[in-house]
Write a protein that binds this DNA or RNA. Structure first.
Lengths: 155, 155
DNA sequence: CTCCTAAATAAGTTTATTCTTATTTAAGAT
DNA sequence: ATCTTAAATAAGAATAAACTTATTTAGGAG
């Protein structure tokens, strides 16, 4: 589903397409619910018994950093979960058990607060985080891509 | 500063006031920037050399769960940071280096996006999470407080 | 003040995640 | 197809955070 788009995005950003990456993207696309990293790892191990957890974490982080996947920080003992970022939405999270619901849209609005209330959910707070790259990290990153694009110029 | 309010809130919710808790609250109130758990631990160890990191984590989590402290998930390799929840605000976070800026207000609005742009920050995504207690966790929690029953505030 | 008990703690263990390093590999160039 | 090299990987070490359990303690009752 998203597979092709994800692969294309990786290529466009200068990343290599490895069997492990394909498997991770496939696992994400097939997963019914936002899975944990460990669940993705377990699934892929059926096909690639030698894949290391580090590879799964590393690539999930990459997909998050490229904006294709959203990492849901459950704000509880529960480990985070990963979800394809389409369609864009946010979450209602229980601090105690880590269960969560999907919300619609981007705002702390009446509709979402009502949705929370209807589920018997007591909201004690919310967090809005814009994430991306600060000026210097962005420059370092573009430096890297540029160097790649223009061949090897060593200092 | 917030010390008194925090202690009062803990009492009102039926929690005991231990020297460790006082020290953690003090350390938070005195910290100039949102500190890491490890930094809080180090600071308190000067006074209480035997305090365990678990106690720090446990109590920070408690303060977050009670809505007095906000845990900033830096969405990067960087560990999270803890900040007194007053005044209420949100954050702009770099995925690469973990640096962050404080934002004003609660919304993904023009003002905040402009503030990001002015800093040379490239926003690749945002997350909005409402957190609190789901129905069953809330019931379990109230059950606990009720059972206690001897507290000041019976309702 | 002393006693009592649930809550809180310290210490040690476990799990999740990240880092380090040596090896392998994707993909562009020849 | 073969060569080259930076990027990606696996494995194991290191770190952060949470859990388990035995012990201590805050704070209410007598």
């Amino acid at each position: 589903m998203y597979d092709k788009f994800f692969i294309q995005q990786l290529k466009q950003n200068g990343y290599k397409i490895t069997p492990q990456r394909r498997a991770i993207i496939e696992a994400l696309a097939e997963a019914p619910l936002a899975p944990k990293a460990s669940e993705i790892w377990e699934k892929i191990r059926q096909k690639y018994p030698d894949i290391s957890p580090d590879t799964v974490y590393r690539n999930l982080t990459l997909l998050v950093d490229l904006g294709m996947v959203q990492q849901i920080y459950l704000r509880s003992k529960e480990t985070s979960r990963f979800e394809v970022n389409i369609p864009h939405h946010h979450h209602l999270i229980c601090l105690k058990c880590g269960c969560y619901y999907c919300l619609e849209g981007c705002l702390v609005n009446e509709q979402n607060l009502k949705a929370a209330k209807q589920r018997g959910f007591t909201v004690i707070g919310h967090a809005l985080e814009l994430y991306g790259y600060c000026l210097s990290c962005k420059e370092v990153r573009e430096e890297g891509l540029k160097r790649e694009g223009k061949g090897k110029n060593e200092s």
